[in-house]
Design a protein around this nucleic acid. Structure first.
Lengths: 237, 237
DNA sequence: CGCCAATGGTCAGATGCTGGTCCTTTGCGG
DNA sequence: CCGCAAAGGACCAGCATCTGACCATTGGCG
């Protein structure tokens, strides 16, 4: 019963007829909040936007958003305080079970395309002083961070590069693939030797971007990603 | 009232607190079907998968899917036939109002990152004979197509390159950005001179991919995209 | 010291979406 | 020529979600 009369490319069919929504509104909302917390976009101790604003931004009713927030509260990720100047404050949960990792090669290849592209585009632009400062700041944070918060500062640096492209869709895509990558990285330890090596590569990439050297930025990022990819393939093979 | 206690990066906040869902289930389902039709994944005269299969794939109830199909029927995109060997068959609608174009630079930059990355990755892989044939076939279709169906065959060729990466996420991302691009392209005419120039570039890109020359594939794609980008910026400036 | 604005907490009614079931149409194959 | 399998068409009960309003708490400010 192969095909009655359908010469449809099965690969493209999988791409286009993929699920319209990854889960119900509650699940997707919670994933987003977890993403913001895990990527360090809202730092530990920081406050999330008010419920009304968040629900409006996410395009979700406040009831649904609150369900997600309550779940995050019970899992120890946030703490809610009432009254004016209250809100949801990010905590450091004792245990944080990451979602199951997806397809490794799919994630790594998508990451390669997105982040090498982002590095090249960022280097091709004339960056504002604020953006240049932010890049340098994130680089310094990564270089001086210990093993415990390396993953978060590293995420922030890579996101800063994506931001420097001034391309919202690209920034969002990089954030998403970074979340998938972190789910993979959770399975392997942070090794100090790799850490110092990464820091050297980070510096080379940021220097190239600040110099406007698109080729060097791309090549530097490609080498950097190859290192992480090799590490992951080794551990998850 | 700048910030009460929120040192949250507003750019990243926009990226992470973006809407969880683009619309209701009906709207998103209809967008997907239109995407499949407009990109030529299901060719004119071709049959869509059965309702039950489609609803399962899209993760949407059959009722909702049928609402979308009925809308497509009333807009002249498909025709439904009952009985065994029936189904929904793609028509050529007389008028097809495209959705309003989004941010031009955002679309073009994201496209640059995704498609140059896809070309490089495709060239880096050892392609199966089927994939090689498919690439050559799509290239030939594009070269021999007239003005009327150039946009569709061109879309198919670019999608074929994405498929060659064997990376589902990348394929889906390229398909999405291509849909956004087509919304922009709808505003400008197809010019024969540009068409022949594009065909030369297409041949260079596919040759590079088939030769496994990653650098040439990337550079060729970058030049090709720059041409379209310049054209669009000129018309939409 | 008391008011007030901003925030989280709660609820009821309306609407959307789902899952399941059954009906109708159609054409191939026995 | 008839029966069956595969497809679209239609319906309904129940759950999920949204809308909108109102209540409760808190800390700064007048």
């Amino acid at each position: 019963m192969s095909l009655p009369s359908d010469p449809i490319d099965p690969v493209l069919a999988d791409a286009l007829f993929r699920p319209v929504r990854a889960g119900n509104a509650f699940e997707e909302t919670m994933e987003r909040m977890l993403q913001a917390i895990r990527l360090g976009v809202v730092p530990p101790g920081g406050r999330l936007p008010p419920e009304r604003e968040l629900s409006a931004r996410l395009g979700v009713s406040r009831v649904t958003l609150r369900e997600a927030l309550r779940a995050l509260q019970e899992s120890g990720h946030i703490e809610s305080r009432r009254g004016r100047y209250g809100g949801a404050f990010v905590q450091l949960p004792s245990s944080d079970p990451l979602p199951p990792p997806g397809d490794v090669e799919d994630t790594l290849t998508l990451r390669y395309a997105l982040e090498t592209g982002a590095a090249e585009v960022a280097a091709s632009r004339s960056l504002t002083p604020q953006v240049r400062r932010h890049l340098r700041s994130c680089l310094a944070d990564t270089a001086t961070s210990g093993i415990s918060d390396y993953r978060r500062t590293d995420s922030r640096l890579h996101l800063a590069i994506a931001e420097a492209t001034a391309t919202p869709s690209l920034t969002a895509a990089v954030a998403d693939v970074r979340t998938r990558l972190n789910a993979l990285l959770a399975a392997i330890p942070v090794i100090p030797a790799n850490l110092t090596h990464s820091n050297e590569q980070h510096k080379a990439i940021i220097d190239a971007i600040l110099d406007g050297d698109a080729v060097a930025a791309r090549v530097g990022m490609a080498e950097h990603l190859a290192g992480t990819a090799a590490l992951l393939r080794g551990f998850l093979a």
